[in-house]
Structure formats: structure tokens, C-alpha cells
Design a protein around this nucleic acid. Structure first.
Lengths: 182, 182
DNA sequence: TTGACAATACCGTCCAGACGGTACAGTAAA
DNA sequence: TTTACTGTACCGTCTGGACGGTATTGTCAA
């Protein structure tokens, strides 16, 4: 799990996200995921005993991907005030340039059973709390959190409406709000 | 269409949204929708020749519900500067008190085929443009738009993380940003 | 005014295909 | 010998949607 080798498990999870993107979250089938991952269906079921468990793991997978990226950025900015908030903001700046695929597995999980998003809720709450803890102004932290959540959701749904230019402007404005002292 | 009578069509669309909430977006079946609407499956298929058309109409239905509510609030606040932006903000204040069900039909449409959200994208863009047109500061409009989008998406996914108190604070802060002059 | 026909708004049934999941025998590396 | 699979065969269920029928209402020529 902690070595550099790409495990079958990881391949399957990545494949599931791709299939969800390709055929629509509601049409994610175990057959298609196994095929995409280059694994037999029996092999898939060996790692994930049923679809619910696969989707559960898929949510965790995306959460970890995001958290890893955030923590890495946080370390880069260590020492600065509000490093987490700044890291979160920068994450979106980077994404703007080299746009990564959205965490489509989340959508598949939600489509199957909205209750599977409970870990997302927990993660988001702790993220918000950490942001609030580091910020001078509570409402600034709340606004930034929500605005970034807005960007994330638009990407997730692929209903991105802001131009890259607008997105840059918002991000810098939010940065100013973060830096401002009440 | 313009009379007060609740048509079978409308009953079916409302039923579809309810079913989506109840069984999960991916498990919205025509049978279940027909049953919930008090209509036979044949009757449903008469109004919507296939599932895709039903979901297409469902997206439009939710968009109209939202737009009607927004326009009504806008009229109430007519004359004031930034009336649209203020109306949008107030809509969330009202929703906070008497929480309405989320537009779950949108999720069903997205689960089936993300492309069905294209009208949402178009609507959002015009909404943003109207907000920008009425605002003194572009970045203020962008931030408010995104933050509200953040709230909407959290509700839609049922991963609402903010306490009612926090939500009130954000909404009033956003109101101040809207009112502030650069 | 009436009889013929057509459009509207459904109902109830049936079916092919897809999907989740099981079972099990085999295999190759560690 | 255990772990980690592959491959095949299969079952039961669900679902979209096609189809044929029906009741009601409207239209319009004779």
C-alpha cells in the first residue's frame, strides 16, 4: 500500500473513475470497470466484494488524492500565515493551468447512493475548521471555502461557466481577502 | 400550459424528482416514476417518449422553478441597485428558514448523462452575466456567484457542512460585499 | 343533427437485454 | 501451500421501451 508499485486495487479505482466519466455515473458497471482496469471480473470481486464497497473505496480514493495534493502544497508554504488557506487557493491556480480530470468517481457513488458521500461531508467539515482556525476573520474563511466549493462543483458537473480570466480574478481577489486584516 | 391546472406532465416531473431523492439518482426507473405520479407506464411514455426526454424536461423543470423564484424576489426588490444580486442572496436566506427540497432531478439527469446539464451551464452563464452587469465590482459579483454556487452544490449533494449560524454570517457578509463600493 | 372519423390521453402487457453477483475450476508466482 | 488472481458459466432480477388496446373529446361533411 505504501510502496511505489501500482496495485491492482489502485488500477481498478482509477478505471472506475474513468468509466464513470465515459459512460455516465449511473452506468458504471462492474464488467466495464474490470475490463478498463485490465482485470477479470472475478479479480475485481476479489478486491471489492460488491459494488457498494467499490464505490465506498472510490470516494475515499478521491478524497485521498485531493488531500495529498493539498497537504503537499501546504508543506511548500509552511511557515506563512494561513498556509492551508493559501495552499487551497494555489491548488486551484495550478489546476487552472494544467486542468486535471474531475473526481468523477464521486458522482458514481452519489448516483448509486447519496449516503456514500458521508465521508466527503466529514472531510469538508474538518477542512473548513482548519481554515477557520488559521484565518483572522471567520466570514472571510467561510466565503473562501464556499467560493472554492463553488468552483469545485462546477468542475465536477462540467458546468464550468467562468472564463479562465474570470477564474484568475476571483482567485486573486480571494487571496486578497485572505490576506486582509479586519 | 399557462392555466392553473396541474397537468399530468407536471405531476410526472415532480414525481421524478421525488423518486430520485428516495431511491438514488441512478435508480430512477420509469415504473417508479409512473407509480408515484399516479399514472401508468404507458401514460408516462405518452408524455415523454423515452427516459432521456424525461430527464431533459426534468432539468428544464428545476431550472424554471429556480428562475421563477428568483424573478419573483427580483420584482419585490425592484428599483434597488443590484436587485438581482440582492434577490439571489435573499433567496438563500429564505431557504435557510424553510428549507425546501433540493432539485434532485438534476442529479438523476446528470447520472444518466452529464451532457443533459448543458442548459444548466447556459442558464448559469446568463445569471452570472446579469449579476455582473448590475454590480459595481466584477470580482465581487464573481465571488458572490461562486459562494452561492457553493451553498447550492452542498445542498444538492446533501453534504451541507455549514451550521445555520455560519450560513447566516456568510450571507450577511456577502450582502456587505455586494453593497460596498470599490 | 347526426354519423364518420381523427386526435388526445392514457392503460396494461410483454420481452430482450443488461447487470450484480455466485460458483468453481485452473494457474502461476512467492 | 498460500496468495492473487483468470476464465467461464450461469442465475434472478430489473428496466427501457415497444405495442396493442381503450375511453373521451373534438371536427366536419352530409
Amino acid at each position: 500500500m505504501t510502496n511505489g508499485k501500482v496495485t491492482a486495487r489502485q488500477k481498478i479505482l482509477a478505471a472506475a473513475a474513468e468509466v464513470s466519466r465515459d459512460v455516465g455515473p449511473a452506468h458504471l458497471s462492474l464488467d466495464a470497470v474490470a475490463q478498463r482496469a485490465g482485470v477479470s471480473k472475478g479479480g475485481l470481486l476479489y478486491h471489492f466484494p460488491n459494488k457498494a464497497k467499490l464505490l465506498e473505496a472510490l470516494v475515499e480514493y478521491h478524497l485521498n488524492l485531493f488531500d495529498d495534493a493539498l497537504c503537499e502544497k501546504d508543506k511548500e508554504l509552511q511557515g506563512k500565515p494561513n498556509s492551508l488557506l493559501a495552499a487551497y487557493l494555489e491548488l486551484f491556480m495550478v489546476d487552472l493551468e494544467q486542468c486535471q480530470p474531475p473526481p468523477s468517481g464521486i458522482l458514481a457513488a452519489m448516483a448509486e447512493n447519496p449516503g456514500l458521500l458521508a465521508p466527503v461531508k466529514r472531510y469538508n467539515r474538518t477542512l473548513l475548521d482548519r481554515m477557520k482556525a488559521g484565518a483572522q476573520s471567520e466570514s472571510a474563511a467561510l466565503i473562501i471555502y464556499l467560493a472554492l466549493e463553488g468552483i469545485r462543483s462546477q468542475r465536477l458537473f462540467d458546468v464550468d461557466v467562468l472564463t479562465p480570466d474570470e477564474q484568475r480574478k476571483v482567485l486573486t481577489s480571494l487571496g486578497e481577502i485572505a490576506a486582509a486584516k479586519a
